[in-house]
Nucleic acid binder design. Sequence first.
DNA 1: TAGATTGTTAATCGATTAACAATC
DNA 2: TAGATTGTTAATCGATTAACAATC
Lengths: 214, 214
Amino acid sequence: MPKSRSEIPVATVSRLALYLRELQQLQRGATVHVRSQSLAERLGLKDSQVRRDLSCLGPVGQRGVGYPVPDLIVAIERVLGTDRAWNVILVGAGNLGRALSGYKGFDQQGFRLVAVFDSDPQKIGSKVEEFPVQDLDSLESFIANTQIDLAILAVPASAARSVASRLEAAGIAGILNFAPIAVHSSGSTTVQDVDLAIELQRLAFSVVRNQRPQ
Amino acid sequence: MPKSRSEIPVATVSRLALYLRELQQLQRGATVHVRSQSLAERLGLKDSQVRRDLSCLGPVGQRGVGYPVPDLIVAIERVLGTDRAWNVILVGAGNLGRALSGYKGFDQQGFRLVAVFDSDPQKIGSKVEEFPVQDLDSLESFIANTQIDLAILAVPASAARSVASRLEAAGIAGILNFAPIAVHSSGSTTVQDVDLAIELQRLAFSVVRNQRPQ
DNA sequence: TAGATTGTTAATCGATTAACAATC
DNA sequence: TAGATTGTTAATCGATTAACAATC
């Protein structure tokens, strides 16, 4: 039987997004069915883990056959919440922010950039993709007048907390935080951190662990 | 007693990098000691978890006082392997690659960009930061002549596997992969994936789970 | 039906937490 | 010493895995 969202383990949620990525690739290749073993091999997992994860969606597989790719895509998107469009604003039009604004992967997954903000007078008015950079001062009024779901926070660490508070106060439901600082969320706003330097540190650790397996 | 790198739980390694970031901030503020409770609050963790994690480093704390900030920084950097400089190349000089090349956080943590590669003739020869973009064809010869530790892979998904194989064959120890595709590593090369669209999907899931807590 | 693969169980493994003795 | 905080234990919690009955 399908699990409700709150019953799905967090570790499973992370992998559901990975499965979705593979499935979308399979669908582009017109693959109709996929076995748990095949998905597992592609992602470096155990087949039993894939089956357990997918069983959270309900009985979507076909015994003796595998999982129907299109059905599985729909089921995962429904659980993740990406079966609808999400309106996203970008705060911070620096190098990283500009790169993120043009990132194709966001659009492909239904995340729609609708506005860009920065506090730098030199940047305000210039264009990022097709969006004129708006003054950070107008953040609240813009959010009040537009249905915005998420914000991508790509400002310096020194500004991150203050901007995050304002986003929360304005009622943004989720923040994807690229600033290298812990941002505390109040009750209703969810914060997801992506720290690029930390990812590189994790990689470095894996390397030194492999190099001298003590 | 200190644990060897292979004995440290993976979950702990991820947090050690977070502790390091906080500690560096504390050190800039000239804080001498920090208690587990204080670190825990800053990062939204339990104090007992902080103490358990830090105990992997050996007895670096002072009972009744807390952890000496400078000593703790040194101990974490030594375990993570970031107590030395790492030479890094960037493959892929698109929007994301260019943003990553200028990312301050890498430099601050001892990761030194030394070269940039791309296969696009339009980009080859142009400058990214102070680095002229080199032809991807010269990847192997460059790596053979320079001590390179890590590669940041910021090419399209369609090119990622082929470039990753070449990096592995050339003896690169670790790859930070930003391409939205599973890259399989052979024995000696470690791959760390960062998929930005997947991070946004995880955020979306947290939001829908919070909005309708079933 | 026979063959194959899912869905699910039970066992194992690893991570988190509270509590407190050790000790600065 | 008294107060405070670490380091560590034991219990709990959650995630992974192998195995196999269910069933397409």
